[in-house]
Design a protein around this nucleic acid. Structure first.
Lengths: 237, 237
DNA sequence: TTTATTCACAAACAGTGTTCGCGTCAAGTA
DNA sequence: TACTTGACGCGAACACTGTTTGTGAATAAA
């Protein structure tokens, strides 16, 4: 007995499990994983880290989860759970759609790095993702968009939404991201100063407003979504 | 001498390097890395794999490249090199812009997995990426879009472009991706059959056209881009 | 009480990125 | 031509990763 073995949990925690054996369950695993996700980001949600948090070994999780990918996907689904899908009102379907989409983006950004999961999974399969997709289609239908175009538009909207949410949450912690962004912009400035002044002139001009702009965040998402919706209207007319 | 040591390369290869010592250079590293990228995908471009391909050790690469991330970014830049930026013609700026963007997407999709690099880097800094960005801004300027909006629009367009290119190249090899997609769609069908028939009704309706649709690929990108450009026009009016 | 089965566990495997001394080799200097 | 010096390729090591598999114990059924 070289090291102090971890004490077993007292039998009265978690409601005196009917079977004293298994303290492992998908629900408990997701709780642990979500806790780690919120405090340390997606990259910290590894099989070993989750297992350690539950006082067990990594291999034990594979009885409840097929993959690390599946675990991450379940986390995404949990993150999407609080998003509310409105009852379609044909009079204000456009605002409802915008609200649904920005709400989804907010829910994703709230859990650091979870947008990457959405980006990595080809087409989402989990219940909440399907629920949101159905909500988007319902609102497009309420807006009188024919089903064929609605499907294509929903695809484009979902893609843009996911990409924007992902872009908002790069680099894990916000301060690291800010630092990285600072490094990048200064790199660009250096490179532009190195070049002859007539090259990349439009980028130079943009560089100036770039400093004063900032505050992209959720506004950048809104702009893209509104462009898409305006484009959809212009296109279906 | 437990194992046969690898033979040193004959001195006449690669033009009898002025310094017989260093067969390592950033250029040679990128050549090797690009070869591996094209034949085995981005995930195979690891420091060890590239080093092995050059007959050296992983640690040696760090004299020429700061990171694996930097190596990947340089590969992205190389992949973007052949994209041609047209001279802006105010009469057909919209078509030119569409061509530039789809061309960029094509260049990305051509190298398996390289779009992921573009997605992962917050804002690109490499020369070719800046060159393309400048080209987009130039075309928007030729179209009479005011600089402020042009910058925002270019951001949105680049985001959409990257996301679409990334979505086109998930799963590495195309057959694995197709298999995964098959698995996903059948999962959705199963889930829908399990639910009461009045739930997720719009998704059910879409499921039917989903089978007949397909052929998204580059058309899906065009649709999104055209929606965005139409939206831009509707918005600036 | 005995049997049977489930299932958590630990170890092992094959990888990963990155760091750091150690020598060796090439170039510059006297 | 001989010597010094500094660059830099090299290999080993560290701390991780996801996943598989044989083992053994604890529970539920008979």
């Amino acid at each position: 007995m070289p090291t102090a073995e971890p004490l077993p949990p007292p039998p009265w925690v978690r409601g005196a499990n009917k079977s004293g054996r298994r303290q492992l369950s998908l629900e408990a695993i997701l709780e642990s994983a979500m806790r780690i996700l919120e405090s340390e980001g997606l990259d910290a949600v590894t099989m070993r880290r989750v297992a350690q948090d539950m006082g067990t070994a990594a291999g034990s999780l594979y009885a409840h989860v097929r993959n690390k990918a599946e675990l991450h996907e379940l986390l995404l689904d949990a993150a999407l759970a609080p998003v509310h899908v409105p009852e379609p009102d044909p009079a204000r379907w456009r605002d409802q759609l915008l609200e649904l989409l920005t709400g989804t983006a907010r829910a994703m950004v709230a859990k650091p790095g979870i947008a990457r999961v959405s980006m990595e999974t080809a087409i989402p399969t989990t219940p909440n993702a399907l629920r949101l997709m159905d909500g988007v289609l319902a609102l497009l239908d309420a807006g009188g968009i024919p089903p064929r175009e609605a499907l294509a538009a929903a695809d484009v909207l979902a893609l843009h939404l996911t990409a924007a949410a992902y872009e908002m949450s790069v680099g894990g912690t916000p301060d690291a991201a800010a630092e990285e962004l600072q490094r990048r912009t200064s790199q660009i400035t250096q490179y532009l100063e190195l070049l002859p002044p007539d090259r990349l002139s439009h980028l130079r001009a943009a560089q100036n407003l770039f400093e004063t702009e900032e505050e992209a965040d959720v506004d950048g998402l809104r702009l893209g979504l509104e462009m898409l919706l305006d484009g959809l209207r212009a296109r279906s007319r």
